[in-house]
Nucleic acid binder design. Structure first.
Lengths: 218, 218
DNA sequence: CACGGAATGGACTTTGCGGTCCCAATCTCC
DNA sequence: GGAGATTGGGACCGCAAAGTCCATTCCGTG
């Protein structure tokens, strides 16, 4: 968006392996720090120190803090989607959904509910102040929901889910329960609300099962 | 909490009507600005200007920015609870819940889903950086949920809700759906996800009704 | 109506942090 | 092996925003 590529002779900047590694170190540190402190409360000096780099490196790889944050949105989005793909792309049954729920709950309980969702927190903090970040986050949520709805579609196609179930809406509802659960758990410093929220959403999906399997959610 | 009241002769600071009004003006301005820009992105000068006061007033009424923010947490919490009491304390039927849902959706749709929930946004922004604010917010959420669960208790007592319904869990689930809905709506700049989320939670509650009234949710 | 404390305006100070710059080290390719 | 690039360190700059201070005005009270 900054450079016009027009017909500049050979203007592309070469980038070495070392450079890539540094950039990665910066993003990794930003990811870590901003997860626990929030985006706005994390300074570039914090990141510089944590990533063992220097100011010039930060500005060598990112135009300014906003660009770094945007890169982080992309980075974190990719991480989450990758992780979620692992847990969702083979989803074919309700019990698979329960396992998915349990994994998220367990991960969050390691922090006693603190910090919330890496994407959700950024969405709240950035949506009202960086349109570009907001739209990337919105797309990432959509992709995440699609992983879920694809699984629900498979369940519907295989007959596990009734025909009148709406995978897209069920996925949106589940995502909202997840995000709301993260938020309440973070405020309470306790995973319990997140469990209740996810169980509600799962019960709702369960009500669309063709054979109402009554297994408990954990 | 700052001053020990012990037995100091007559040490309490008198406060005039005018002083109260100014303090109120400051809080009102802070509330407005921080709602749209977020807490950290709003400066004291913004607030000073919007409230038609001066720096000395800000520091006359609040020790520092953190104290102002904490006062805002209390202020906003009181506003929300007051508003919600109006919509929930007479709750006795499922259709009352639907009306409550519609009011929230409509209010949020006026902003096209932007800004989210005044309490939820603060919870995300502050939970990881101000323990006192976090715990106040957590208590406010609990009080809000109690307004809901009280209504559900009344519904259960009157026989509208089955005995095996758990009002507290239903209320937590509904609150999570609401907060998650706000979050997704804010990221998408579209109320739709909030509607889907609330409808899911309401459907879940509906599944506990004794006579499954089939009226649509709007 | 005078006195004291509260309320107010706004200039001033301080500081944290984003952003710039320059020089050195290291790499790459001929 | 040397020219020209990229990578790197870190001092420095500038500004915006938090926070201080004091002179002045307002107002309730004896």
């Amino acid at each position: 968006m900054a450079d016009e590529q027009v017909a500049a002779p050979t203007k592309q900047r070469r980038i070495s392996q070392r450079g890539i590694a540094t950039r990665e170190r910066i993003l990794e540190a930003a990811n870590r720090l901003m997860f626990v402190r929030g985006v706005n409360a994390t300074t570039l000096d914090d990141i510089r120190e944590a990533s063992q780099t220097s100011k010039s490196q930060l500005y060598h790889h990112f135009a300014d803090k906003q660009e770094l944050v945007r890169a982080l949105v992309k980075y974190r989005g990719a991480l989450v989607l990758q992780r979620e793909r692992g847990g969702l792309e083979r989803l074919r049954s309700f019990s698979g959904l329960v396992r998915w729920r349990n994994a998220l709950v367990q991960a969050n309980s390691l922090n006693n509910g603190k910090y919330g969702c890496g994407l959700g927190s950024m969405a709240v903090e950035l949506s009202d102040q960086d349109e570009q970040a907001r739209s990337m986050l919105s797309e990432t949520f959509a992709a995440w929901e699609k992983l879920i709805s694809d699984g629900l579609h498979r369940m519907r196609d295989s007959g596990a889910l009734r025909q009148d179930a709406d995978p897209e809406k069920l996925a949106t509802g589940l995502m909202a329960a997840l995000q709301g659960g993260y938020l309440l758990a973070n405020a309470a410093h306790d995973v319990a609300p997140m469990e209740v929220a996810l169980d509600m959403a799962l019960d709702h999906i369960k009500s669309f099962l063709t054979e109402p399997a009554g297994e408990p959610t954990r």
